[in-house]
């Protein structure tokens, strides 16, 4: 299991990285944490001729507050997220999710930018970003643009990124104070992708759900936003019947593959269970 040969580039700015990607064309791939790409290269399922390592670029790592949004640099690792007080305080669902991604070593290297940008339906952050209404800052030969996470994912490993573009930051509107949240992930063991996972962010008012967003991980070839399910719970006190209805609505949009994690029927069914459990736990946390 040895990668094929390639040339290594380590630009020091995003602009240089973009220039490299444009000039090297299809045979070049950006390298962030490498924990998706390098295993693929070892199996020679990916054989890029050039790797553009983003680790040398200053200014695209770290978490900062920008008015009512929180901006996460693309090269921020999962470990950085776990260590960030700002994240624990303002976006605790990110902390909860980062903890169930891969394992400790992978979290030191694996980046949030890589997790959201490569379009792997098994990654946990994309559904979460859709749930939170995040947008991605993309820098390319034509300049910088912003794409909302909900529009970014088009198919497995197929996203809105144009050739030469690099995802540099994730911008997340800070959720309302007192919001409830939960990321429920069913997996076979530490290090596995989700058999099914659901992200919920909601607010409660007078014992009823006031606002709600629900995201689903690894239950289709892209992350999903379960809009109908969210609509069903708004205005309710999350009684059993409503939860079941919401789960059923979420299951409607799921189309998971049958794999070692289980047959389709199972993965959909536990997808529904994850939605119910996440809703309950989020509601219990809402202030």
């Amino acid at each position: 299991m040895i990668p094929g040969p390639f040339s290594y580039h380590r630009p020091s700015s995003v602009a240089d990285a973009v220039k490299l990607l444009v000039s090297l064309g299809d045979e070049a791939r950006p390298l962030a944490g490498g924990h998706s790409l390098i295993p693929m290269m070892k199996l020679r399922l990916a054989t890029p001729e050039h790797l553009v390592d983003l680790h040398g670029i200053a200014g695209i790592k770290g978490v900062r507050r920008d008015g009512s949004t929180i901006v996460i640099g693309a090269m921020t690792t999962q470990h950085d997220l776990l260590a960030s007080e700002m994240i624990s305080k303002s976006l605790p669902i990110l902390h909860e999710t980062a903890l169930v991604i891969a394992d400790p070593q992978v979290r030191y290297r694996g980046t949030v930018g890589g997790n959201v940008a490569n379009g792997d339906p098994g990654n946990d952050m994309p559904a979460l970003m859709m749930t939170l209404g995040a947008s991605y800052t993309l820098q390319g030969p034509g300049g910088t643009r912003s794409v909302v996470a909900r529009d970014f994912y088009q198919g497995a490993y197929f996203t809105s990124l144009e050739p030469g573009e690099i995802l540099t930051a994730i911008v997340i509107p800070a959720p309302a104070s007192g919001h409830g949240y939960a990321y429920e992930k069913l997996k076979r063991k530490v290090g596995d992708y989700a058999t099914a996972a659901a992200a919920v962010v909601l607010t409660m008012s007078g014992g009823k759900v006031a606002t709600c967003a629900i995201g689903l991980t690894n239950l289709s070839e892209t992350p999903l936003l379960a809009e109908e399910a969210a609509k069903i719970v708004i205005g309710t006190g999350l009684d059993e019947a409503t939860l079941k209805k919401a789960a059923a609505a979420a299951e409607e949009i799921m189309s998971p593959a049958a794999d070692g994690r289980g047959p389709i029927e199972y993965r959909k069914s536990v997808g529904g269970i994850m939605v119910m459990r996440a809703l309950k736990r989020a509601a219990a946390r809402a202030g």
């Binding site: 790797l51 070593q105 290090g191």
Partner: peptide, 23 residues
């Protein structure tokens, strides 16, 4: 060789890293 087992774990700049998944 697939970043699962951790036998290749080393410490790099204060981080635990699986050295089979880094150039």
């Amino acid at each position: 060789e697939t970043t699962h087992c951790g036998a290749c774990t080393i410490d790099i700049d204060g981080m635990s890293v699986k050295s089979c998944t880094m150039f």
